[in-house]
Nucleic acid binder design. Sequence first.
DNA 1: TGAACATGTCAACAGGTGTACACAATATAT
DNA 2: ATATATTGTGTACACCTGTTGACATGTTCA
Lengths: 213, 213
Amino acid sequence: MIRIQKKHRRKDNKTIDTRQALFNAVLELMNRDKSFEAISLREVTREVGINPSAFYRHFPDMNTLGLELVSLSFKTLRQLLKDVRANPVQGSEVIRKSVETFVTYVLAHPRHFHFVIRARLGGVATIRAEIDSELRLLVSELSTDLARQLNTDTWSTEELKMLAGLMIGSMTRIVEQLLIDNRHHQNIVELIDLGEKQLRLILLGASQWRTHS
Amino acid sequence: MIRIQKKHRRKDNKTIDTRQALFNAVLELMNRDKSFEAISLREVTREVGINPSAFYRHFPDMNTLGLELVSLSFKTLRQLLKDVRANPVQGSEVIRKSVETFVTYVLAHPRHFHFVIRARLGGVATIRAEIDSELRLLVSELSTDLARQLNTDTWSTEELKMLAGLMIGSMTRIVEQLLIDNRHHQNIVELIDLGEKQLRLILLGASQWRTHS
DNA sequence: TGAACATGTCAACAGGTGTACACAATATAT
DNA sequence: ATATATTGTGTACACCTGTTGACATGTTCA
């Protein structure tokens, strides 16, 4: 049984949450171009500066660490969406501002997003499945948001999900280009521009959906 | 120096191209849920049934094998596009038929597509870069195709790439859902349907681009 | 203070890894 | 048939891996 309590401190008086340090180590190693599957337990502990055996005080294995990292990362993302829904963007440049907010948020938590983007298609099936279900949840939530703005006579539930999937897919692509191998001189402003235009085009298509017979 | 000639045969009289067998072994192992980075040289040779040292007769290391696998896989994809351009789809259901053709092609070469989809965001930087540049090429090609069909007064080169990127991104998503963890009861017909609708919506948006002020 | 717990170290294990080198077998070409 | 190039085997090396069990340290609470 592993129960974590943060009451203990190290003798150097610094409050170190080793558990958190282990998370960070994994994120750091992935940032250095390693896929999660290729990161060894010993590597992680080496990064943190503890003995390999100490790892087991916090997680039974790397796999469960990965799973917790998924839910941790999505907590970050859900917070963003909660904020956005609380203060909905208004005015003429809704789309541009939304994309800007999103990109800013991603850049404020690059490691978490980087991890999710990578692990989504990575080698560990359980982690992939977890991310997949989180993303499906996101699509569903966005669908109900969209339902409020669109004519539900012309839009079936299925079609709303299709539209939401398209939008989230587009944003996912932006994040990928933002965080991975971004030496293609694509600066942030250009990417925001790209994202804005893609979303605009999608919503333009949506506005015409089925009015074209 | 490694020079490959296929003149040699094994004593059992079967013509075995070990080089090809090594490729297949990697694809097979990735199919069994391993990321490329996590596949060891020894594993590959074990799968083929040769001594680990024999690997070096064909590739200097796993990395270059991966790179060659990329160009091999894209050769497959380019063939598809060449065929499509030679026999362009006509008639009322252009989009649906295109998506069907594409999906059929993917399912005919699942391993190659599976490999590319996975390695695109995988841990090996050189491989990622290679796939990235191949995909950019695809986007460019599609852009010029689209340029012939759209009004080049309202569409700049940049915007054509934006549109092409959106279309290819959508199709990429379809392939991901088609080949990875597809236990979400999403059968092929449903996926084709999804892809068709997304493309239709995108092209609907494109047809209205900038006629709206 | 002392018991209980949380968290760490250390040493050891069996096994997997990449790679090098000497050698054997096979196929091709003269 | 013999020489040469190609492709394989066998062995060995030093290194990294996950996991274990026994032990030490520090912290909390009664």
